[in-house]
């Protein structure tokens, strides 16, 4: 996304945590007011914010909730030092927010398959809402997690979606189908294609990178368009530090992503293979890079 003028929200906007919801044993959703200089942020599903935990770190987080009053919410999984510190914070504590950043999902006409894996479900939540408004009859949501306990927003999704619009899976079979979201997609594809009829099918997804690379293979095989949200280490969020660049297209995950489409994903040598660390050094995702 190319901007015309610098955003006032490139500087962390400190704001009190208004409420905290424990979603799963490891995931909490934080709600904050993000009305900067009287402007309610306009958020596209799939965009992210940089969350400053004063004294600790600043980390990218998908925006999962937008309320009418300008409050936004984001769901955090306790996985590292920064997220752990965030998990210890309470209502009234100050955090800094800047953004929203990046290009979100471009919801297209036709049949939509929206897929979330693990904490990646946070990134697709707003898109599910938007798709429900736009074309509820041509929608299938697939969510997966390692175990039943880690299925994010499960009750809410079951409330807003009809059983025919939703498939659930877990790696260990503790809820829904046993297996990965890619397997569930392939298993149901014939049925989905019947439902979609002559409509174009687009898959939208966020989850672990291995899930996304497998998903791209499935989508390529079955000639489905994919939009996937990627994650990379970043410092600035606005295209200057270069740490989130994915080779060889000069694509910056913070500005051109985090959501990229099949045409781009198919050209990326780095997708599923390489990341850059805090120093800018490139390393294989499957290596024990310290």
């Amino acid at each position: 996304m190319t901007k015309n003028e610098q955003s006032i929200t490139d500087k962390p906007f400190t704001t009190e945590i208004k409420s905290v919801v424990q979603e799963t044993p490891l995931m909490k959703t934080y709600y904050v007011s993000f009305v900067v200089q009287g402007k309610i942020p306009s958020v596209i599903p799939g965009q992210f914010i940089l969350v400053w935990i004063p004294g600790i770190d600043e980390i990218p987080m998908a925006i999962s909730h937008v309320l009418d009053n300008g409050d936004i919410g984001f769901t955090v999984k306790d996985v590292g030092e920064a997220t752990h510190a965030l998990h210890k914070m309470k209502i009234g504590d100050l955090i800094g927010i800047r953004g929203p950043y990046g290009n979100g999902y471009q919801l297209k006409d036709g049949f939509s398959i929206i897929i979330g894996g693990g904490i990646g479900i946070a990134s697709i939540r707003l898109l599910v809402q938007k798709a429900l408004q736009k074309n509820p009859n041509h929608l299938l949501v697939i969510v997966g997690a390692q175990t039943a306990k880690e299925l994010l927003y499960l009750e809410e999704l079951q409330e807003i979606l009809k059983p025919s619009q939703m498939l659930v899976c877990t790696d260990d079979g503790s809820h829904g189908n046993e297996g990965f979201v890619t397997m569930i997609l392939e298993k149901n594809l014939l049925h989905i294609k019947e439902k979609a009829g002559a409509n174009r099918i687009t898959v939208y997804a966020c989850g672990p990178e291995i899930m996304l690379t497998n998903l791209l293979k499935v989508c390529n095989t079955h000639k489905l368009e994919l939009e996937a949200s990627l994650e990379r280490f970043m410092r600035c969020g606005f295209g200057l530090c270069g740490l989130c660049v994915v080779d060889p297209l000069g694509i910056k995950i913070c500005q051109n992503g985090p959501v990229l489409n099949s045409a781009v994903l198919n050209e990326l040598d780095d997708f599923g293979k390489f990341h850059r660390d805090v120093t800018g050094e490139k390393y294989r995702i499957d290596s024990n890079h310290g």
Binding site: D10, K11, D57, L240
Partner: peptide, 10 residues
């Protein structure tokens, strides 16, 4: 650590 690059406007 971050924040290590921020915008100040203008």
């Amino acid at each position: 650590p971050n924040p290590s690059i921020i915008g100040l406007g203008n």
